[in-house]
Design a protein around this nucleic acid. Structure first.
Length: 178
DNA sequence: TGCCCGATTAACT
DNA sequence: GTTAATCGGGCAA
């Protein structure tokens, strides 16, 4: 899981033809209290305990949707939270859905990202390798920076946040960690 | 059965 | 900088 997370940076994620390049992710594992799967399976996070390669969508603060990729190994209940995209495809659609013109903020944050792509809990448990999802491997070399996770209050010490170096589409600046 | 809190965002002072 | 919006899960009673 800690291997696939940084590898996702720079890959292109499309949902029904709308999306862009992944510039920010965070890794979660059920052995640390920040993860939803920490306390064991529930109806909400059940997909995290299933096979890898599926989407886990959950509601945050009762308002927003957040998209996760379920990772190897199966049953480990580990997942990677997609935090930010660099908008590339379907800009018009995303702008309409988000109701704003600022391209930089279209997908800079988990809740914004889901709203822009039109992802809701209805897509929870969908396979990531078939429509409407489409993931294209990154092309060429990208500079990945690791940092401390943000927006959480538990297990903040783990440097499991990964971002594309210098990207202006990050939800917040990335603080490098050795 | 009820209360408190969170992997957030946007609007307001 | 601060605060409301809003819902499912964990924990206390």
């Amino acid at each position: 899981m800690l291997e696939v997370a940084p590898d996702l940076i720079g890959a292109t994620l499309l949902f029904a033809g709308v999306g862009g390049r992944i510039v920010e992710v965070e890794a979660y594992h059920h052995t640390e209290p920040a993860a939803h799967s920490f306390h064991g399976p529930t109806p909400r996070n059940a997909v995290m305990f299933g096979p890898p390669g599926y989407a886990y969508v959950y509601r945050s603060y009762g308002i927003h949707w957040c998209l996760n990729f379920v990772c190897e190994p199966k049953g480990s209940a580990s997942a990677v939270l997609i935090r930010a995209l660099e908008p590339l495809e379907g800009l018009r659609v995303m702008r309409r859905r988000r109701g704003m013109a600022d391209e930089r903020l279209l997908c800079a944050g988990p809740g914004r990202l889901c709203e822009a792509l039109g992802i809701t809990v209805a897509h929870n448990g969908l396979a990531l390798d078939q429509p409407p999802f489409e993931i294209l491997p990154r092309i060429g070399v990208v500079e990945v920076v690791a940092g401390l996770r943000i927006g959480i209050t538990k297990a903040i010490d783990k440097p499991w946040r990964y971002g594309l170096k210098g990207s202006r589409f990050l939800s917040k600046p990335l603080t490098p960690v050795a």
